[in-house]
Computed example of a mutant assay.
Amino acid sequence: MSARDPQNGRDGAISRPKPGQDEGAATFGAFARKPGARRVAVDVSSAAKEDVIETVDALPEDAVEVGYIADGYGLKGWVKIVPHANGKQGGDALLTAKRWWLTKGRERKSARCMQSKVHADTIVARLGGCDDRNAAEALKGHVVHIARSDFPKLDDKDEFYWVDLIGLDVENEAGVALGRVADLIDNGAHSILRIEYPGTNKDGEPVTGERLIPFVGVYVKTVDRAAKRIVVDWDADY
């Protein structure tokens, strides 16, 4: 099994908020098993002309944070985005979605993505209504969100986006509850489920326990998103 993850390491996008990110915001990332990068740029400049970045009251209900604007790029209004997925390893949503939502503090904006492409470990994009370097630099620090419904479809039934695994209950094959997925970690070879569960310390005070289970087929037996449950081959005392 493989999963799409927010960022390599425990100090990734879920654990460490990016500029302008709300605490607890859902985030998106790359494949743990790295496929070939999809490098085809999206270009919708010939589509409906939308040359305004407009203020909106709220984001879509399925909006997922995918990165943040780090700087302007060039002189023609392009922006540089640091994705929560390495640009070469799966920032596909940034390359395919035509509508982005930008947030910074209490600001909420909607922008048409006219063109986007991989640039080294980042993604650069041209947004409708952002026509020069000054306009691009004014967007620096904005967090980029994309609707979950606009994420590229996964080809393999055993591949999952991290954002879809977070919050699922985990139990072993004997039916013993092991906790709930809090986030995931990428160790370079595969993803690891970080599971939290209620416990007590030596003084009998309530604490949050943690289990780390590799997200690989030998341990993970079923992932049932509809039932919000993952079944694993793992003893409760591991």
Rank of each mutant, 00 (worst) to 15 (best):
S2K: 13
Q7E: 15
G9I: 03
P17F: 01
P19C: 07
E23I: 08
G24L: 01
A30L: 06
A32M: 12
R33H: 12
K34T: 11
G36Y: 11
R38Y: 10
V40E: 15
V40C: 15
V42G: 14
V52Q: 14
E54L: 07
V56C: 04
D57S: 13
E61G: 12
A63R: 01
A63D: 00
V82P: 11
L95A: 01
W100Y: 15
G105I: 01
E107F: 06
S110Y: 08
C113F: 08
S116R: 08
H119R: 11
D121C: 08
L127C: 05
G129M: 05
E137H: 10
H145R: 00
L154Q: 07
D155Y: 06
D156S: 09
K157E: 13
K157A: 13
D158T: 09
V163K: 00
V163M: 00
D164E: 07
I166G: 02
V170H: 01
E171C: 08
N172H: 02
N172L: 00
V176T: 14
A177E: 13
A177F: 09
A182D: 11
N187Y: 05
S191V: 08
I192T: 08
I192R: 02
R194D: 10
G199L: 09
K202G: 04
D203E: 11
G204A: 05
G204C: 06
V218T: 13
V223C: 03
A226P: 01
A227F: 04
K228T: 00
V231A: 09
D233Y: 05
